[in-house]
Design a protein around this nucleic acid. Sequence first.
DNA 1: CAACAAAGTAACTGTTTAGTTACTGGCTTG
DNA 2: CAAGCCAGTAACTAAACAGTTACTTTGTTG
Lengths: 225, 225
Amino acid sequence: MEKPQAGARGRNGNGGRAERSAQRDPERTRASILAAATQEFAENGMGGARVDAIAERAGINKRMLYHYFGDKEQLYLAVLEEAYIGIRTAEKSINLSDLEPEQGIAELAMFTWRYFLEHPEFLSLLGTENLHRARWLRQSTRLKELHSQLMGKLSELLDRGRAKGLFREDVDPLHLYLTMAALGYFYLSNQYTLSTIFGRDLAERPNLEGWERHIVHVTLASIRR
Amino acid sequence: MEKPQAGARGRNGNGGRAERSAQRDPERTRASILAAATQEFAENGMGGARVDAIAERAGINKRMLYHYFGDKEQLYLAVLEEAYIGIRTAEKSINLSDLEPEQGIAELAMFTWRYFLEHPEFLSLLGTENLHRARWLRQSTRLKELHSQLMGKLSELLDRGRAKGLFREDVDPLHLYLTMAALGYFYLSNQYTLSTIFGRDLAERPNLEGWERHIVHVTLASIRR
DNA sequence: CAACAAAGTAACTGTTTAGTTACTGGCTTG
DNA sequence: CAAGCCAGTAACTAAACAGTTACTTTGTTG
């Protein structure tokens, strides 16, 4: 993340350390705007988010927000792009080649679940984006090129499992991915209405753990012979 | 829906027909505000919905909206309540007592899927409500009393299936319900981002039919012995 | 070190927004 | 049939909002 600054030598008079001035720091300002905007958009959606609130959260002047991002819509797009890049990056780091097919599928299901659990802002942004029928996602050339890493890994595991006679012949990798994602997404994104209606707090530890086991169980049951 | 009006006899001079004045019609005004508000909130969320837009859609004066519903929040709550009443009413009409357990579960899964498919505004309102952590749902005593009819039917079918040795012993009815709902909800509510990213239009007829079969398959596979 | 560019501030602007006021016209009931 | 309430209208208001202007400060470079 730290980009070496031009003319860093002797800068600031603090013995060549790569520290930037406490007063001016474009990278840090940009990053804190993006972080604040992520929070604000995730909490309030596109229509409910307030530019002034983002500026205040970020501890910067509103003018800077326009300076770095153009306008509210472009800032939202930057937030969305960063969120997608986050999950795609995390997906890359999974290594399944040593695992048995069933264990590999289970790992992917748990990865998806845990990523959703640890990144509620990502779920929320997905919800907002879908409310607007992917208006900004469709605009983003960056994101359209950013394919899910999971689909390839899933296909490879399915092939191996099929060869071993473990999985059914007609499993569609997309259906499998959607199944895992759906079970995690719905439980978490709808936890507030569900908890209210069923009078059972879905966010409690044992319930979360139970649902993780359930996702793995359902996913595997749906593809086994 | 038609409520008999006080002093209906001879009213309006049109031979006792239960038609109300073309000029003044509280019921119809209320209903058209509610319908317009449902559209507007579903399309734009709570933060994005505009009171003026609702009034215009309903073809009424904005003042009437405040007259009948108090303010924007109370109008939103009325919309939410009506939406929940809609699905709960539809759930009531399902009769499964003649069906075999497996067939009954399949019917419930298809019912949920088709209801979601035909009522996109309900899904959207759920999304909005969850964005706000069920803020209005929790306020509504009416809705907290309105339990899902599906859970009872589901439990009965599970008992019958278990007795016949068809289903596993440890199936949690709530988990089963959440599974069916999750598969339908996620596919539809996230169809725009998913279609964009996977380059495959999830709203196309064959894809929708394929997903319905998939939901039934996954649901049953997850509870069979 | 002068000249310039980039980073940052404060105060402002025009528009949109939820909600209100002050009023008119029609229906029902004593 | 008059008194009063209910349905409805148009124009208004105060606040909130996204975005801008005019300016200052800080750092870099020929």
